[in-house]
Write a protein that binds this DNA or RNA. Sequence first.
DNA 1: CAACGTTCTGCAAAGGATTTCAGACTCATC
DNA 2: GATGAGTCTGAAATCCTTTGCAGAACGTTG
Lengths: 329, 329
Amino acid sequence: MPVTIKDVARAAGVSPSTVSRALSTPGLVQAATRERVRRAVAELGYHPNRAARGLITGRTGNIGLIVPDLTNPFFPGVVKGVQERARESDYSVFLADTDERAPLEADLVRALGKQVDGIVLCSPRMSEAEVRSVAGETPIVMLNRRVGRIPAVTIDNGEAIRQAVAHLVALGHHRLGYVAGPRVSWSNRERLRALRSTTAATGVELLEVATVVPQFSGGVAAADLVLAAGVTAVVAYNDLVALGLLNRFAARGLAIPGDISVLGFDDIVFAEMVNPALTTVAQPKEAAGRAGVELLLHLMEEPDRAGTARRDLTAQLLVRGSTGPPRTA
Amino acid sequence: MPVTIKDVARAAGVSPSTVSRALSTPGLVQAATRERVRRAVAELGYHPNRAARGLITGRTGNIGLIVPDLTNPFFPGVVKGVQERARESDYSVFLADTDERAPLEADLVRALGKQVDGIVLCSPRMSEAEVRSVAGETPIVMLNRRVGRIPAVTIDNGEAIRQAVAHLVALGHHRLGYVAGPRVSWSNRERLRALRSTTAATGVELLEVATVVPQFSGGVAAADLVLAAGVTAVVAYNDLVALGLLNRFAARGLAIPGDISVLGFDDIVFAEMVNPALTTVAQPKEAAGRAGVELLLHLMEEPDRAGTARRDLTAQLLVRGSTGPPRTA
DNA sequence: CAACGTTCTGCAAAGGATTTCAGACTCATC
DNA sequence: GATGAGTCTGAAATCCTTTGCAGAACGTTG
């Protein structure tokens, strides 16, 4: 029932080999023949059987994408970027969600590895040793993390953080709080580092108030600690945490930004849906996804030479309503 | 380099045929032999080559999932449900996002159709004719829509809406507004129908205030119309719209729920992150995803008999802070 | 006109698993 | 002890495409 290469060959009056070549190595077949084949293909609606092709070429035409939690609004943007870029190169995307269960990650990578030509591993929670191990088995590109010489796309928050601190200082803040994300998070470490150096350089005080799960509930939990710390502005690990802070602050009757300014990371869609809208460091999510696929494509083509491939994207501060001058200023 | 069925056969001292049977039809091979094969498989770390298997069985072991927009927080929940259930039956999931471009849907289904055994089509925007057409080519299960006898998972909002209206009436509301979603949306029509019949039965007034895009901006745009309509409570097509309403209401200085009560649909994660938290009709998103895969599995096994397969899940009203007695009550 | 070089096409093998069919073997029964 | 049924196993064909190799056709040149 399905139309095979033989059907096309018969219709075009050539051999299957020629059809195959006309499609994948057009240069090797005469223009006239090529055209006949093209017509037959179009007429019969032929599409090469992926399994058969994969069997002989050893490639699947698929890439895998692993994210920690799709309901975290940071990730859908990345997924979209990955999809788009993959489609442009005729790859399909297998998506897997680890549900934040770090121990599952490595297994998932290994399982997926057999069905794809390469994997984009997004914000992996597994240990460095595990990362190295799986990267040795399958072409892997990481997003939001660096381990050794494994190709990776990261987002450089340094400049954005300098802008953010400058913004807060300009508003008149002198004591900043930071509500940290998971200690194992590469992004968290980077952000903290940039904050430390920038505040030190600017001469403002930085209090590391708490370390929480990178979710709404984490922000809620940290809010009272932030208030007790007596800071006039607080930077949260990500927007979810920032929203949790805002929520609890509102519940305690504080005015934002009058009583306290709040600044997040990621620019998730909801950052501008709250009131006041959240000032945040926007991450180029789709661009990161696209870049990840690009690195992966290189890596799959030249597995040897691509070990050093890196891409560092720049984040951008978006000033909205949740930051303002402190009341005392 | 990769370990094939022959390697296992050699290690176990049997023929490839026996290995194949030991794995896929264990009943057909003697217990002792089966055990030897099992051991060899484990020892060599053998995994059947999917392409080779697919070539002969004609099946891929993959299913496709198409959603209109992954950044709409309704869908990630569905995706998770689909993934989970698929994994349980050893299927992998191809995800595609149409970016709300309706004309793209049919093409995407057809392209994906060749690489999967079946497709879960989530809230499709395409025409009925197109739906029927693609469903004739590939096993398809729809989510959130019904077309003819095509297997579908829907969510019955009727009972939840009765509860919602009863809730608002009990609070003392007599004039309700509805901010509608896209007219072509099956869910919108269902919700509107249920609202009409329920309000009629309860004797309260229903005003269909506006029809908007099912997004935050739609809610923002509709807010002033709602106020002008002079209702004391408003039901929104979905949570995004409801959040848009809340946002604009807050900007205009209204107290929620004192000045106006707001009720949404979906129970997206952010419904409980706003202040006050949004009263909403919770959709069993993951369950819907799971059910979709189950229907699809049936459909793929018995393409003939499954034409009537349907699943209707029940939604549930979650009362939170955005609904309360009207100020005049 | 013959020899040679190019360019294009076809044959056949290969890739790994499943499955039909037939053969081997065991066991029980007559 | 031979025949029959019943249970397991193996050989070989098959799925569809790609690709190395060899041959055919054509044009060019001596």
